[in-house]
Design a protein around this nucleic acid. Structure first.
Lengths: 178, 178
DNA sequence: TCTCTAGGGTAACAGCGTTAGCCACACTAG
DNA sequence: CTAGTGTGGCTAACGCTGTTACCCTAGAGA
């Protein structure tokens, strides 16, 4: 009987997720193939299926980890902050720019919530809802703004000369007046 | 010598792009394979390469078309509108919900601008910049908000019970006070 | 009539996720 | 001590992907 870590994953499965994480961050999503992940561990791709149900499950594990890290970053950011919304915004952008491939993986597509570690999505969301004073609509609008700024920046959609810091401030001050 | 349409594409290339468009909208991105596009025209995949340099070029053509359509939608929306920002927001969300796969294709990844029809991106962007009174930072922040709301909705990231209309209004009113 | 080109075709390659089936080792029960 | 069972590797293979090399035919122009 394989012992399972707090994430609900087997020890070996965690090693696989770790290898995948390294590959993703170092070489981007195209490098995230079952064969390459296996290669990093010195085994062959089919062996991965002894530990994980498939690539979707592997990605879901990466995403779960991402949510936990994002939650920690958020919780640290609001701790004792006088401007929680601003602090969250900085933390959010920072997280995404430091782990662009993981951020894209986390937000690109519909979430397979059934494959996610339970509670991680909610935990990452909570600090923002609290910073919005419990106003769900404000929280959602602010999240949409932050995600939009972030993913458009990651995708190189703003002109290179654009002052993104100014655009962030513009949006944030708008929301703060709400 | 193959005659070329205004898009810069050969007549036959345009037929291919049309077939691809149908496939994308009817069956989603997974159906957008060179073999299936070719099959829709009664030919084989390698023959596509007589007309288009590859799949990236095909996608770029789809994206170019998408920008033109979005520009037309925007231009119609602001025509005589008393609240241009609000009109653009409605038009934006509407466009994306009516063509979700195309919208995702247009925004998902870094743009291959070298493969795009010239000027289409700028044309689609202009109405918003004008609605923002020429304030580029405001325009960028508003675009980020709109894209964020849209893509998060398309990706099913808001709770099913969320009142997205209210979140849109929340964000819009914030930006309007700027 | 000869030649060139446009636009089809087939075969094939490398890489993808995944499945089937085999095998060796370690642990546990009798 | 032995038999049985489960764990975790392996190879081979399937169907799919984008793409390339190469062949052939029909029509146009000189």
């Amino acid at each position: 009987m394989a012992s399972s870590a707090p994430s609900g994953l087997t020890l070996r499965a965690r090693e696989i997720v770790e290898a995948a994480r390294g590959l993703l961050e170092e070489e981007g999503p195209d490098a995230l193939t079952m064969r390459r992940v296996a290669g990093r561990l010195g085994i062959r791709a089919p062996s991965l299926y002894k530990h994980l149900s498939g690539k979707e499950a592997l990605e879901a594990a990466l995403i779960s980890d991402g949510f936990v890290e994002l939650a920690e970053v958020f919780e640290a950011a609001v701790r004792g902050a006088e401007d929680p919304l601003g602090a969250l915004a900085v933390a959010y952008r920072d997280f995404a720019l430091r782990r662009p491939h993981l951020y894209r993986l986390m937000t690109d597509r519909p979430l397979r919530r059934d494959l996610l570690a339970p509670g991680v999505e909610e935990r990452a969301a909570r600090p923002l809802v609290e910073a919005a004073g419990g106003d769900q609509n404000l929280a959602r609008a602010a999240w949409a703004f932050a995600h939009g700024m972030t993913i458009l920046e990651l995708n190189g959609r703003f002109p290179p000369a654009a002052d993104l810091g100014a655009a962030w401030r513009e949006g944030l001050s708008a929301f703060r007046r709400s």
